[in-house]
Design a protein around this nucleic acid. Structure first.
Length: 877
DNA sequence: CACTCCCGCCAATTA
DNA sequence: TAATTGGCGGGAGTG
């Protein structure tokens, strides 16, 4: 077919331009008709083709011509005419009608030009299972010319293939064809990553939102995983990548592709709707909600889907949901992979992944590959590991297993986040307000916020968690006395507070993210504690400075009340100190009851979910932690630091900000709050901006980062509100909820009214310890555990204030807080630098090492997830 | 009209 | 600086 087309087309114009021109020309082209007779089949019947055969044909035929043509295109255009004219066309031209029709046919219909088809052609050129020994190099230029397409299109294909390790980039314009040998491994990795992440979420969701689940469940699940996935992938693979280009690549098709695939692998149904996937991806990316972004994401997903379809991994289907029929894709590729994890992590993954990529260049790769590299890479590694680095990071290779672990944790975190987002999104959608996120005026900021949150938070969190025990908690404190945390603690809030992890609230759909705001630091908090921290916060803030305010305002609402009350003073102080944890919340009361209540009463589902969640997390975490530790000592440290930072940040940010003054408050914590409008099924998330930083810090391991403190609240519950986290409480909590949790404890939250519903609370920090504890030493491990969620009931106390008002109202609000304060909080180890960089903006930092990554990531915010991941990974020192 | 998604501008990166 | 990559979104093709 192609050939035909080519013959016709190619002669004329190579590719693009033609359409229009062609039309005219086409008229001319008639000649082709003669020629094309064959063509008939071409367009219309894509399927039929045999990829290879056609390809070959095309190639053979086209290649020569095509190449030239493309290049010539422009030239040709003019020429085309001539050419065409040359041919009988002119005559035909006359003929027009008939000819024209043919043209049309011939004319490359859109379908013919589709990326999927192009991909098939591309794939046809290479053996699915090339001899392991030999490597086939692919020249982009050559392929482009052969296939008669713009190079740009080839990039689209190659990027997706690269994400699956079917090819790897060797050098400029040069890719190495690996074939599908590694595909299963790659898929395993992705699946694992996805599962880890989303698994928890899944459970969580499932329990709670069964309803949603029905429809959404899958989605959510998927979504969750996705989010995680992204990161995971990123981490593992990205590490390198991230380093180099956080910015662009984060959003890259490559990453999106991996995430997308992860979703499928995670999904029970194996069906992923585009919208869900888009949402998920956006989340990760942080982008947000904008409709435009959504559209863009969808476009990209189509691009990816076309390639995956060509690979025979998915097929288009339609899913009928509430809203109606939605386009979706079903996974038709392999579902089970034998070794998955082990291999992946152990070696196979890498080998597979890497290998695939191949970069033989990077011998070192493995090491490099590992997540950390990125981080380190930046700084130290760059030089050291050129391999990948040189490459571009290739993208994602799955590099190291370790990373994966981290990733897992992270992913979990992420998943949660993702879930939240999804919910949010859903809510938004459903509800009247489509884009909840967008809702916030902050959009820009918003993005940041979001990004930051997720990214920073999650990743960070994980790392921390794993390594540190969440936040603060235990590990950090215990483990790292030296850490800032302690100091903070003194201030008033225990370190733990600062750490705070997550809170999950049952009901409604709010999402709050809290971050420390720069402002805080600015304003009030003098950087005392940790300049760095502050800075970091600032940095973050900086990025979106504008945003901050915005957010703050919105958010303010929420927490503010509660926060204000409590915190104000304390908070500020804390902030200064750096802590501030989640004061937002409130709650002392909560403590008490919460735990208990939560567990039992609360409920219900949510509680359960949470718990489950915890469990899940914990286990993985722990393992990961261990692994990581073993593997990466650095990371752990970093993580710790991060965690600390986070904690502090979180805490600080958490509270205050929101409530009161939002933006400017002394410290505003940054929160990201999202309300789901509609029905949210809800989750509410509360993140503290602070965390992000922390998270960032984590970077060390790519993964890790659960530490982030987040609070998720179910929308429903929100109404009541509830949650608060107070450091103090934490302890209580810990005891209450799970043991695990308690230890860490930092988290506290109380839910007020909601109790019943299910407030869930997840605290990273606190929890950690206990379970993990064993490994206390390694903070990391503990950390994971930390994540646990503990459901808490909140009493209605203070918490309510916070949220309810504000939160509830808006569909979504994100606040980004940067919270500098936090940094201060836990200054610990954290390197200031990072934070700064981290926060700062992307560019600014120049920091060395970690920064880079972090910065990059952050800077970009955009790509939130990835970056986060990256960031986290970065940490290493 | 909605869904797809091609096309290619142009920014980010790299050489 | 030039070339390579690749994000992004307009807007056209398709149903």
């Amino acid at each position: 077919e192609n050939i035909f087309d080519r013959s016709r087309m190619s002669p004329k114009t190579p590719i693009k331009n033609e359409p229009v021109d062609l039309s005219k020309q086409k008229g001319c082209t008639p000649e082709r008709n003669p020629i094309t007779p064959v063509k008939l089949a071409d367009r219309p019947q894509p399927d039929p083709w045999t990829p290879t055969a056609n390809l070959k044909m095309l190639v053979s035929a086209a290649s020569p011509d095509m190449r030239d043509r493309e290049k010539k295109k422009e030239l040709f255009r003019p020429i085309e005419n001539s050419e065409q004219s040359d041919t009988p066309e002119s005559l035909q031209y006359m003929v027009d009608d008939s000819t024209i029709d043919e043209f049309e046919k011939q004319r490359p219909s859109r379908k013919q030009k589709s990326l999927g088809l192009l991909c098939q052609k591309f794939l046809a050129r290479y053996p699915s299972y090339p001899l392991s020994t030999e490597k086939t190099t692919i020249s982009l230029d050559e392929v482009a010319s052969i296939l008669g397409v713009e190079r740009r299109r080839i990039y689209d294909i190659v990027n997706v293939l690269e994400s699956l390790h079917l090819v790897s980039r060797v050098a400029k314009n040069q890719y190495c064809w690996h074939g599908r040998h590694n595909l299963s491994q790659t898929l395993k990795m992705l699946q694992e990553a996805g599962e880890l992440q989303y698994g928890e979420l899944m459970n969580f969701f499932q329990h709670k939102e069964q309803d949603l689940e029905c429809k959404f469940g899958e989605r959510k699940k998927e979504a969750i995983p996705n989010s995680q996935e992204g990161p995971l992938l990123d981490f593992s693979e990205t590490d390198c990548t991230s380093t180099s280009a956080n910015s662009r690549k984060d959003k890259s098709l490559r990453i999106m592709s991996q995430k997308f695939v992860m979703l499928f692998l995670v999904s029970k149904t194996k069906i992923v709707t585009l919208d869900i996937a888009a949402k998920i991806l956006i989340e990760e990316t942080q982008d947000t909600v904008d409709h435009s972004k959504f559209k863009t994401k969808v476009r990209r997903l189509y691009d990816i889907a076309n390639v995956l379809t060509s690979l025979g991994l998915i097929k288009k289907v339609h899913v009928t949901e509430e809203r109606g029929r939605k386009p979706a894709f079903k996974w038709i590729g392999p579902v089970e992979f034998p070794v998955k994890t082990d291999e992946l992590r152990g070696h196979s993954p890498r080998s597979d992944l890497l290998p695939g990529t191949q970069r033989g260049t990077c011998t070192p790769h493995p090491s490099c590959a590992t997540g950390k590299q990125k981080l380190t890479r930046h700084a130290s590694f760059n030089g050291a590991q050129p391999c990948e680095g040189t490459r571009r990071k290739v993208s994602s290779e799955p590099s190291s297993p370790r990373q994966e672990r981290q990733d897992e944790y992270c992913s979990k975190m992420i998943n949660l986040a993702a879930v939240c987002r999804q919910k949010i999104e859903e809510d938004t959608r459903n509800p009247s307000t489509p884009s909840s996120l967008s809702v916030l005026p902050l959009s820009g900021d918003f993005d940041f916020c979001v990004n930051s949150l997720p990214q920073a938070v999650f990743p960070v969190v994980q790392a921390d968690v794993t390594r540190l025990s969440l936040s603060n908690g235990v590990s950090s404190q215990a483990l790292h006395p030296s850490t800032p945390a302690a100091s903070k603690t003194e201030n008033g809030k225990p370190t733990q507070l600062s750490n705070q992890p997550f809170l999950c609230f049952p009901s409604s759909s709010l999402y709050m993210l809290c971050g420390g705001l720069q402002e805080n630091s600015l304003r009030e908090t003098p950087p005392t504690a940790g300049d760095v921290g502050n800075r970091s916060a600032e940095a973050q803030a900086a990025i979106p400075p504008a945003a901050c305010p915005k957010r703050s305002s919105p958010k303010c609402a929420l927490p503010s009340a509660a926060i204000d009350d409590e915190e104000p003073a304390a908070k500020k102080q804390n902030m200064e100190q750096s802590d501030v944890p989640l004061s937002l919340v409130i709650p002392k009361k909560a403590f008490e009851s919460p735990m208990t209540e939560s567990t039992p009463a609360s409920g219900s589902t949510s509680a359960v979910h949470l718990e489950a969640f915890h469990l899940n997390l914990a286990s993985p975490v722990a393992s990961e932690a261990v692994d990581k530790e073993s593997t990466k000592p650095l990371d752990s440290q970093e993580q710790e630091k991060q965690s600390q930072n986070k904690d502090s940040d979180e805490l600080s940010s958490g509270k205050e900000p929101s409530s009161k003054e939002n933006a400017n408050q002394p410290f505003l914590p940054q929160y990201l709050y999202v309300q789901p409008a509609a029905g949210l099924n809800s989750f509410n998330f509360l993140f503290s901006a602070n965390q992000a930083p922390g998270a960032i810090s984590l970077a060390a391991s790519p993964l890790p980062s659960l530490s982030v403190p987040c609070v998720m609240v179910p929308s429903a519950a929100l109404a009541s509100f509830p949650l608060v986290c107070s450091p103090a409480i934490t302890s209580a909590l810990s005891s209450i909820s799970d043991g695990s949790f308690s230890a860490a404890t930092s988290v506290n939250f109380s839910m007020s009214g909601l109790a019943s519903p299910t407030p869930v609370f997840i605290g990273t920090t606190a929890v950690v310890t206990p379970r993990v504890s064993p490994a206390p030493v390694d903070p990391q491990q503990p950390v994971h555990p930390a994540l646990h969620l503990s459901p808490v009931l909140a009493s209605s106390c203070g918490a309510v204030k916070l949220d309810s008002p504000v939160c509830m109202g808006h569909p979504v609000t994100l606040l980004k807080l940067q919270q500098p304060s936090s940094a201060p909080l836990t200054p610990k180890n954290i390197r200031p630098a990072r934070h700064e960089a981290f926060f700062k903006t992307p560019g600014s930092l120049g920091d060395p090492v970690a920064w880079k990554k972090n910065e990059g990531n952050q800077a970009r915010n955009v790509s939130s997830v990835q970056r986060r991941l990256e960031i986290s990974s970065t940490s290493p020192d």
